[in-house]
Amino acid sequence: MIAFRPLAAADFPMLTGWLAEPHVRRFVQKTPMTLEDVATKYGPRVRGEQPIICHVAQSDGADFGYLQAYRNRDWPDAADGQTDGISLDLHIGEPAFLGRGLGRAMLDAYVRGLALPHFAQTTAYIAHELANTAALACSKVVGFTPLREFVEDGEAMLLLRLKL
């Protein structure tokens, strides 16, 4: 069973560690972040100063992943210019939780049970590098369908959409 709790400032050391993990660095956070960097970036989100929701995913009470969602109209450069619906970002931080189907479970539970209802939306977008075949497969199993390819920061990406 997957549960979610809001990200808190007390989670910043854990999040800093996750962002330094090789599997996260490969596709999510390519440049190193210090604890101060994480506090600067995620602090406004935790304090409600930005229109974005951030959560920690738990399995049997153990923290293992990070998720965030935001309305696309609030972030014009999100979702390759889409203005409808919401966008999601996520990663499994704890290496011991990789390869167990938890990415699929947390994405499905989060998008349908928390993110879309929170923003009163019926459309969600997610983008992955084309080389991130595990994330692409996960999103497709959850029901996201390919929309179009685009380039972000020099990387070939695929934008996927879920419509309820």
Rank of each mutant, 00 (worst) to 15 (best):
Y125F: 15
L162Q: 06
R25T: 09
D60Y: 12
F64G: 00
L116I: 02
Y66W: 12
I92H: 00
Q50D: 08
A57L: 06
A137D: 11
P13S: 10
Y42N: 07
D11E: 07
G85Q: 05
H23Q: 10
A127I: 00
R161M: 10
D37T: 09
Y42W: 15
V38Y: 04
V141Y: 10
A109H: 06
A156Y: 05
Q29S: 15
H118N: 02
G61E: 08
R47Q: 14
L98R: 05
L15R: 04
L158D: 01
P32H: 12
H55V: 08
T83Q: 13
R25M: 10
A39M: 07
F119K: 04
A79R: 02
D89C: 01
A109L: 03
F144M: 10
L158E: 14
V56S: 01
D77F: 06
L19F: 06
F119V: 05
H55E: 12
A9V: 11
W18V: 07
W18D: 02
Y70M: 11
G101S: 09
L102F: 10
K163L: 11
K30E: 14
A134P: 07
E49Q: 14
Q121W: 04
E21L: 05
Q50G: 00
T145V: 15
A57G: 15
Y110P: 02
A124H: 08
W18S: 03
A39E: 15
L35H: 13
Q58E: 15
Q29R: 12
F27E: 01
G154Y: 08
A62D: 11
S59W: 14
L158H: 06
L15I: 09
Y70D: 00
F97H: 09
F27W: 15
E149G: 13
F64R: 00
I92N: 00
R45K: 13
A124K: 05
D80A: 15
M157C: 14
L15P: 02
